[in-house]
C-alpha cells in the first residue's frame, strides 16, 4: 500500500474504534486511536499473515501487550477481513466473541490473550524464541503502552530478549504521553524510554507514530537489524483524529455519548474528504 491508501485505511480503522466503543458504551478509545496508524501498517503492509487462514503456519505474530486498546486491534482485524466490520458493534457485549480484552481462543487473528499489563511482551519473547529454536523465519511484533512500561515484567522480558539477541522481535511503544491518572512523566516517569531499551541491548528507533514514511522506514530498519531486538518508540497523540479526544487523558477509558459520537464521525469523515482531495 502507498501512504495515501494506508491513511485511508487507518481512517476506517479509527471509525471502527469509535463505533465499537460507542456501541459498547465503554472501552479505551484514546490509546486505540493513537496506535491506529501502527496497527494499520502492521496488518496491511508489514506482517506475513492470511486473514483467510488466521493460524497459518509460519505467519508473523502480533501480541497486543497493551490489551485494553483491543478496539484498535479489532477494528484493524475486521477491516483486514478476519471477521465482519459490523461485528465491531458487539464489542464488550454479553455473548460477543469481541471480549473487552483480546482473547486468543475466540477471536480470529488474535495470537495471544492479553490485557494484564506487562504480560504480552513476555509471550511475544517466547514466540520469537520459538522461531529461533526451530530456525524459522517468522517475526514477532508487540505493542506496549508508555504507561505499561512501568510494569517490571516489561524489563524482565526486555533483558531476556536483549540477552538472547532476538532480532526477530520488534517491540513498539505507543508513546502518547498519557495514562489514566495523567501525564506519564507526572505519574511515574518512564523517560528516557529510548535509552532504557538501548541499555537492555535493543536497537532503538524514534518515530512520529502518525507519519507512514517514518513507520515504513522503521520497520525496514528493524528487519535489517541483526543480532539484537528492535524497539520502536512511536511518538503519538492520544485520541489522534478526534478533535475533542486528542491529548486528553480523560479519553483513555471512556466511551463517547451519541452527540460526541456524531462529532467524532464528522471529524473522521472530514479526514476522508481531505484524503479524497489528495487523491484527486
Amino acid at each position: 500500500m502507498n501512504n495515501l491508501e494506508l491513511k485511508k485505511t487507518a481512517n476506517q480503522v479509527r471509525k471502527g474504534i469509535v463505533t465499537g466503543v460507542h456501541a459498547a458504551k465503554a472501552g479505551h478509545p484514546g490509546g486505540s486511536l493513537s496506535a491506529a496508524d501502527i496497527y494499520t501498517y502492521l496488518y496491511f503492509e508489514e506482517m506475513n499473515i492470511d486473514p483467510k487462514n488466521p493460524k497459518m503456519e509460519g505467519r508473523d505474530r502480533f501480541v497486543l501487550s497493551k490489551g485494553h486498546t483491543a478496539p484498535g486491534l479489532y477494528a484493524t482485524l475486521a477491516n483486514r477481513g478476519y471477521f465482519p466490520v459490523e461485528d465491531l458493534t458487539t464489542l464488550r457485549k454479553l455473548g460477543s466473541y469481541l471480549q473487552g480484552h483480546p482473547c486468543m481462543q475466540h477471536i480470529p487473528g488474535v495470537d495471544m490473550s492479553s490485557g494484564s499489563l506487562g504480560q504480552g511482551i513476555s509471550a511475544a519473547v517466547g514466540m520469537a524464541l520459538s522461531a529461533k529454536i526451530d530456525n524459522k523465519d517468522f517475526r514477532v511484533y508487540t505493542l506496549l503502552g508508555d504507561g505499561e512500561i512501568q510494569e517490571g515484567q516489561v524489563w524482565e522480558a526486555s533483558m531476556f530478549a536483549g540477552a538472547k539477541k532476538l532480532d526477530n522481535l520488534v517491540v513498539i511503544v505507543d508513546n502518547n504521553g498519557l495514562q489514566i491518572d495523567g501525564p506519564v512523566d507526572e505519574v511515574n516517569t518512564p523517560y528516557p524510554i529510548d535509552k532504557k531499551f538501548e541499555a537492555f541491548n535493543f536497537h532503538v528507533i524514534n518515530i512520529d507514530a502518525h507519519n507512514f514514511d517514518e513507520i515504513r522506514a522503521a520497520f525496514k530498519e528493524a528487519k535489517e537489524t541483526k543480532g539484537m531486538p528492535t524497539a520502536i518508540i512511536a511518538h503519538s497523540v492520544k485520541g489522534k483524529g478526534i478533535s475533542f479526544m486528542e491529548n486528553q487523558a480523560g479519553w483513555h477509558g471512556k466511551a463517547p455519548n451519541d452527540d460526541e459520537y456524531a462529532t467524532a464521525m464528522n471529524d473522521l469523515n472530514k479526514i476522508d474528504e481531505e484524503l479524497a482531495k489528495e487523491e484527486a
Binding site: M112, A123, V125, G126, M127, L129
Partner: peptide, 9 residues
Amino acid sequence: GIAAGLATT
C-alpha cells in the same frame, strides 16, 4: 510469559 508464548507455537 515466555512459556506461554512458546506454547502458542
